[in-house]
Design a protein around this nucleic acid. Structure first.
Length: 433
RNA sequence: GUGGCUGUAGCUCAGUUGGCAGAGCAUCGGGUUGUGGUCCCGAGGGUCGCGGGUUCGAGCCCCGUCAGCCACCCCA
């Protein structure tokens, strides 16, 4: 066939077989978000390029090589959103939400875009669920958000997820920590991998995240040595340290299990204090399912009043990849298939339309032979078959057959809806709950 | 952005040293024009990802390109 066009690199189509699971997952997530009192904020899929460049940090990978940047016909410098937070905060300021209430709980869902080399679980257009709790610096806000984060995964059937958590402090203490690392690692530069030598220059904290055996050996050696290898939380100021302790205590009180990861670093510049992530091994190299943290300086960076915030992003594509591998599938509603004959086709059409006010009904549209319709009904998996036979129709009845048992009964046409209702009751709630 | 592997029917995949493009599943038709899923018979469906080169001859060899995948970078 060789189609003339194919979906652009890193994008994909979700067919009905896929979207069924997506809609289920989205519906479940929405319920959890509502229970936590979050309201939906929809912001544009593109914003001024400058908004993302400023908030993410000029040196971040997102800005340097992953942004879909373009000029529109009015020569505006724009970019498709690579994440939600910047746009949500822009909207927060633009509409003066800070003046209407002190704390806002906002969620968003939709596509985000990053230009990178695609592979499984990594797409150039992908979907995120984003949540932000804006206006509170209290440790309880962090606990609330992390708790929501975990509950969303649990609503999808994830169990025993390990949330990795760390504190990245304030930008100033982070810089100081970076300097310290740089000093300590400088003597070992020869032995570090090329990547880590580059990280040492650009973002020393990332060296701690290395996957190279050699690098890990160097780090272990350093840790054993007299100088030791300081941890980020050792360099936190008093307030940050107190916040960290209270977040951990709060999570324990709430029954949210976390694992401290001193090497955890988040990619964007605006993070402060709490940072957290969740991974799933089955995804291979693209194991990050979601992550978030606190960003107390962000709103000021955008020209607003000092406003603390904490939030996260969940990658839907990756989460659903895991669910698919596990064979998670929302139940299909039982359907009714109406089978007609040449002489009853017109009557059946009206019947089908009437039944569809209430039930999922399949019916042949190709005026196929009775036998072919029965065959199709069998393959479709319809639970109930309504057979509109010529003789029965004249008597005002149809044959109702249960495809599971093969048993068949005669039902008066004006009693059909009631009968179906009795047999199919409770179906509607199955898909969504 | 770096390195590597792979593209054959809707899907999963065979295809010999270069010699007429195949199977299973799926689809459609018939056996069965008033009772399906099983079974039997049959049919349709391919510019072998795309473009170029080598050759009497290319699915197979060479170059390019597009796409997917794997590992990095980074992240969701």
């Amino acid at each position: 066939m060789a189609p003339r066009h194919q979906a652009p690199r890193g994008t994909r189509d979700l067919l009905p077989a896929d979207t069924r699971l997506w809609r289920w997952a989205e519906a479940r997530a929405l319920q959890v978000l509502e229970r936590y009192g979050f309201g939906e904020l929809r912001s544009p899929m593109f914003e001024e390029y400058e908004l993302f460049a400023r908030t993410a940090g000029e040196s971040s990978d997102v800005v340097q090589k992953e942004m879909y940047r373009f000029q529109d016909l009015g020569e505006r410098d724009l970019a498709l959103r690579p994440e939600f937070t910047a746009g949500v905060m822009r909207a927060y300021l633009e509409h003066g939400l800070g003046g209407r209430a002190r704390v806002h709980r906002l969620w968003s869902m939709g596509p985000v875009f990053r230009y990178g080399r695609p592979q499984k679980g990594r797409y150039r257009q992908f979907s995120q669920i984003n949540a932000e709790l804006v206006g509170s610096a209290a440790p309880g806000a962090d606990v609330e958000v992390i708790s929501l984060f975990v509950d969303l995964y649990e609503a999808w059937g994830f169990r025993d997820l390990t949330v990795l958590i760390n504190s990245v402090g304030q930008p100033a203490s982070r810089r100081a920590y970076g300097e310290r690392l740089r000093e300590l690692l400088a003597p070992f530069a020869e032995r570090l991998s090329e990547d880590s030598r580059r990280r040492l220059e650009q973002n020393p904290l990332r060296v701690l995240d290395t996957k190279s055996e050699g690098d890990l050996a160097v780090l272990a050696e350093l840790r054993e040595s007299g100088a030791g290898l300081p941890r980020m939380i050792d360099l936190l100021d008093t307030d940050d340290r107190a916040h960290w302790d209270q977040v951990l205590a709060g999570l324990e009180a709430a029954g949210v299990a976390v694992e401290i990861d001193h090497g955890l670093v988040r990619g964007l510049d605006y993070y402060t204090r709490t940072a957290f992530e969740v991974h799933d091994r089955s995804l291979g190299a693209q194991s990050a399912l979601g992550g978030g943290g606190r960003y107390d300086g962000l709103i000021e960076m955008l020209g607003g009043p000092p406003t603390p915030g904490v939030g996260f992003a969940i990658g839907l594509d990756r989460a659903l990849l895991v669910l698919e591998e596990r064979g998670t599938a929302p139940p299909l509603a039982d359907t009714v298939c109406v089978v007609a004959m040449d002489s009853t086709r017109a009557a059946a059409q009206a019947l089908v339309r009437r039944l569809r006010r209430e039930f999922p009904v399949e019916a042949d549209v190709e005026a196929r032979a009775f036998g072919a319709q029965m065959k199709a009904a069998g393959k479709s998996g319809a639970r109930l078959l309504v057979i509109v036979g010529e003789d029965e129709w004249k008597q005002g009845v149809v044959a109702l057959k249960d495809s599971r048992t093969g048993t068949q009964q005669s039902v008066a046409v004006d009693r059909l809806a009631d009968t179906l209702r009795g047999l199919l009751s409770g179906q509607e709630t199955q898909g969504g709950a």
